[in-house]
Design a protein around this nucleic acid. Structure first.
Lengths: 167, 167
DNA sequence: TTAAACTTTCAGTAATTATTGAAAGTTTAA
DNA sequence: TTAAACTTTCAATAATTACTGAAAGTTTAA
């Protein structure tokens, strides 16, 4: 497999994986492109490489910046803006986990907590609702805490300890 | 909050969370409904409760069965089919993790492995592609292994050990 | 058998989500 | 200033995904 083929394959695979980590295809592809680029890329470069429009590029770059995955960089002597992505996968994982937790998981945990706290009127169906949502609440919260800690760079020794447990 | 309100809130929240665990809204809502039901439900019951069509119900139930989350049950003296979902959240998490791993993560790991194994022609861009996809490959695989082990019921003592590390 | 009770399939349609491209907005060099 | 170089916004449109409902298919009781 040659460079160009490998590159295309990587970008398209990573793009279609976007849904797995909660971002859209174009966003994921832009990130993938920056991730394997040896130098910052301009909007023009990205449009060209991925064959997407200026508007699309602009909007998705903004989203990536909102997530904290991509940053603008200045290139000496250039007027236009250039972009780079976080290159360290551990840090990338940390950012994604934190953001998804904040955007999606935390709000759900809140609802589960509310729902599982309704007044128990003694009926079977109320008891079941309370029991099941409470179980889901506890599981979701445990998972959320664990995933965040696992990817937290500052406590990265934990990953090693955890992996030891798996041996 | 009364029972009906809590129930509706739970179903709609769980439904919109579907994307997080890789299934569509109707699928997630059907599962949610079964999850808090005290008895098996028929297709009719589900259509009625969620206000969705027969076809939609049928297709999504089939998908839930494909995932192994929902099973048909016979109800004595009834001709039609009834459905139940796995009620244990730990087991549910295990099934979801295993299925997503198999359907989505494993194929990506395979591509990452392939791409990171291209011949190093010595150019800077090839080196970068290899380095970065290899890092992603290792991270993705580690995560995949860890998540599967963490939710694996049969090794559930690990969860406790891991939680101790977090204290 | 057969016909009633039930489930599945799928073409058509609706709803949602992503993308374009051109106009409006912003920045910078002269 | 101003005009060229660049970025953002957003209404229109395209692409994708989900849903409906009726016809076709299946099962079961008599």
């Amino acid at each position: 497999m040659e460079y160009q083929e490998a590159k295309d394959k990587f970008i398209s695979t990573w793009g279609s994986l976007g849904s797995l980590w909660g971002i859209n295809k174009a966003m994921a592809q832009i990130q993938a492109l920056l991730f394997i680029s040896t130098k910052p890329l301009s909007m023009e470069d990205i449009m060209e490489e991925l064959k997407i429009s200026r508007g699309n590029t602009s909007m998705n770059l903004r989203q990536l910046m909102d997530w904290g995955i991509v940053t603008k960089t200045l290139v000496a002597g250039e007027r236009k803006e250039f972009f780079t992505t976080e290159k360290d996968v551990q840090e990338l994982a940390r950012i994604v986990a934190k953001e998804r937790s904040r955007r999606e998981i935390k709000p759900v945990i809140k609802v589960l907590e509310e729902v599982s706290s309704i007044k128990n009127d003694g009926t079977e169906k109320s008891k079941e609702l309370i029991k099941q949502t409470k179980a889901l609440y506890e599981l979701t919260e445990t998972m959320d805490v664990m995933i965040n800690k696992l990817v937290d760079q500052k406590q990265n020794w934990i990953t090693k300890s955890v992996l030891k447990l798996f041996k």
